[in-house]
Design a protein around this nucleic acid. Structure first.
Lengths: 220, 220
DNA sequence: CGCATAATTGATAACTCTCAACGGTTGTGG
DNA sequence: CCACAACCGTTGAGAGTTATCAATTATGCG
């Protein structure tokens, strides 16, 4: 790993380094479903960590086109900018509790503290890795592959095994995968009909019944 | 800007901070056209800066699908990894001269030097910004918009005004834009026929005759 | 000059989008 | 508690964009 100084070897999340190691004050805040957390091109005053809930980061284009760059789930940090303004907008997908840390105090801390700086670098690198993976998906994969990849990603990130409880609707998934909601729906139906997944109760609760086959489609 | 300590306020490129400020030794090396610079999943031993030429960073999928994440032109740094292995492969698009800096020496420098660390953060942030912009393009834009955006990007990055001399072929452009080479060719022909661009001599040398219209398509 | 590579162009196919209708769920207020 | 509205998800039909396959022309290099 790049720069292996006295940082904890396996920190649970990059963000955590910010206030455990460097005593940067933080506050918590609740965002009801659908609430804006910050808007694109607004000054970046805080950086954020999801305590509970789910957040979507997105950019808009004309004709109502929206690209969701990432979903942030419990534990994830987001909203860190190198420049002074946010490049994405962020909204609560469902009722969400966030930890907020003042950007200014992080900066102050980073100026004298390599560990804080390393946390920022790790957080940025994590975002970069995710964005690069997503490039491959958006540029080269079919609809079915994208949806399969999405399910694998979500299952991997959701701590709970068993039922995958998606917090977002089909339109969110579509805008994340560069598809339409109908295409997402059809892909899910196809996976269901080929016995790879199963819906439990509502259509947002999914059980992967054939992990191997799903991974196969994903890796295609 | 995040962390505004004693770093030069407008450093020409993030990479430069690495050996100007921190005296990290570097070496130069030539790569003929088509040569591999490093492969995906190889250990990351160096970080790189283009002195002259052009480099493509890409990931592969089955069935020969390739996603080019970025082109690196003169001045650009690339190959910086937080983890120990490269996540992309990199090849010289044309005959290319690179500056190489040993990763290890950068790490050593970064452990005691906030300026070096800041350079790494800036470099990573620059890559992230580019990747995020590219997400929007790959997820939401039409073929014509993608090609227009590509031309605007290349024109913006090429120092020389006037003729835009593309170092890469149509397949490279296609794999960068998530299209096929035929679609790229057709989009360029459409732009040519609507008087937005003109070919000079070879089909790689392009003059933008209607910057306004091109920007309009790009921003759509 | 000739061959290999690159780029264009055309015809057709395939995939995904768009538009539309319908069924299901949830939440709210009478 | 029920009725209704709003939202969500699915499904179908058809259109549109881009991919695929194929042929031709252009370019560059030995």
């Amino acid at each position: 790993m790049l720069v292996t100084i006295n940082a904890p070897p396996q920190a649970p999340a990059a963000f955590d380094g910010l206030n455990t190691a460097a005593q940067v004050p933080s506050l918590e805040f609740d965002y009801p479903k659908g609430t804006e957390i910050f808007g694109a091109s607004e000054p970046a005053q805080y950086i954020y960590q999801v305590i509970e809930g789910a957040v979507r980061s997105y950019q808009l284009l004309s004709h109502g086109r929206r690209q969701i760059g990432a979903f942030h789930l419990a534990g994830d940090g987001f909203g860190l900018e190198f420049d002074d303004v946010h490049r994405f907008s962020a909204e609560a997908v469902i009722s969400t509790k966030l930890r907020l840390v003042k950007r200014q105090s992080v900066e102050r801390s980073a100026q004298g503290d390599l560990v804080t700086m390393l946390s920022l670098l790790r957080m940025t690198s994590t975002s970069l890795r995710h964005a690069e993976d997503h490039l491959l998906l958006l540029g080269q994969r079919t609809a079915l592959e994208r949806v399969a990849n999405f399910l694998v990603e979500m299952e991997h990130r959701s701590a709970a095994a068993g039922v995958l409880a998606l917090p977002m609707n089909r339109r969110d998934i579509a805008d994340y995968l560069g598809l339409t909601l109908e295409t997402v729906s059809r892909a899910l139906t196809a996976l269901k009909q080929s016995g790879v997944i199963k819906f439990m109760g509502t259509q947002r609760d999914i059980v992967v019944t054939d992990t191997g086959r799903l991974a196969e489609i994903d890796l295609c």
